[in-house]
């Protein structure tokens, strides 16, 4: 039982969880629609300068205003949201496949190999996701940022999956099942079906939230997306120079980023299985 289940126990809370998750999923769906229609919604292509007058305050014409180069912030934010959203999906998928699937598979490997893997990954888990991702980007290139964020987030998911799978494999019910000749494939199916059915949205939502934060931070620090394919982190970084006066080029991408992370966390029913 995860700690989240301790906190959210009882029928009323479990209904509430379903509602929260539904809100998060709808929000994420809404963002997905915006992303899909980004070329329609945005009046200008990504990075197009002099779309409007420079440093224009948000008004009816330019809902999110323009920056010093006359770029339309609404268009830029929509394009950047599309970049962040898609690279977040890639990163989350990598984190889940490398982390969760490998974690569950490692338990079924010979015991020593599994434990050795757990030890190695445990050492990687002693480093913050952000620094690990920076190392991967530094050793490869900027284009690898989504992969780097996914790989960097995978050790903690691996460790948790491994520990959970180990608990399941050593549980009484698994022992009884083996003692009555239930084949290993059936037990594996059990784990896949029940873990996926019970936890997939939670795990995916949390993985998406944490990889998106890592990706945006990478870009903000200069290790992620590069112009003209700016993501939200890079937009905030480039607006930072004079955001004390020109607040809108920084505020709107920041809000979009926060909303994206929030919807992912809501979709995970605000599950707090790991420290934020």
């Amino acid at each position: 039982m995860s700690a989240a289940e301790d906190i959210w126990s009882g029928p009323r809370e479990s209904r509430l969880r379903v509602v929260i998750s539904a809100i998060g999923l709808s929000g994420a769906g809404f963002i997905a629609v915006i992303v899909a229609l980004s070329d329609v919604i945005a009046r200008a292509p990504a990075g197009a300068v002099k779309v409007g007058p420079p440093s224009h305050v948000p008004d009816v014409m330019y809902a999110f205003g323009t920056d010093v180069l006359g770029r339309d912030i609404l268009s830029e934010t929509v394009h950047a949201l599309a970049v962040t959203f898609s690279s977040g999906l890639v990163a989350a998928a990598i984190a889940i496949v490398v982390g969760a699937v490998a974690g569950f598979a490692a338990v079924r490997a010979p015991l020593r190999l599994g434990v050795a893997l757990r030890g190695i990954v445990g050492v990687l888990g002693a480093l913050p996701v952000l620094l690990l991702a920076i190392v991967v980007v530094g050793l490869t290139s900027h284009e690898f940022a989504p992969i780097a964020a996914g790989l960097a987030a995978s050790p903690s998911i691996f460790n948790r999956s491994f520990d959970r799978a180990m608990r399941l494999a050593r549980s009484r019910h698994a022992e009884y099942a083996r003692a009555t000749g239930i084949p290993a494939s059936t037990l594996l199916r059990r784990d896949l079906v029940y873990e996926v059915r019970g936890n997939f949205i939670n795990v995916a939502g949390r993985a998406f939230a944490s990889t998106t934060i890592a990706l945006a931070t990478l870009s903000f620090l200069g290790f992620g997306a590069m112009p003209p394919h700016a993501d939200l982190g890079l937009m905030i970084a480039s607006a930072r120079a004079n955001y004390l006066e020109l607040w809108w080029p920084a505020l709107f991408p920041a809000l979009a980023l926060i909303l994206l992370i929030l919807f992912a966390r809501l979709a995970a029913a605000l599950d707090e299985g790991e420290p934020p």
């Binding site: 009484r172 019910h173 698994a174 009884y176 003692a179 009555t180 000749g181 059990r190 029940y194």
Partner: peptide, 16 residues
């Protein structure tokens, strides 16, 4: 062979 063996136990964790 074990398919023909079954357990009924006082262990509440015996079932998944």
């Amino acid at each position: 062979l074990r398919r023909r063996v079954t357990f009924i136990t006082g262990d509440d964790d015996a079932l998944d």
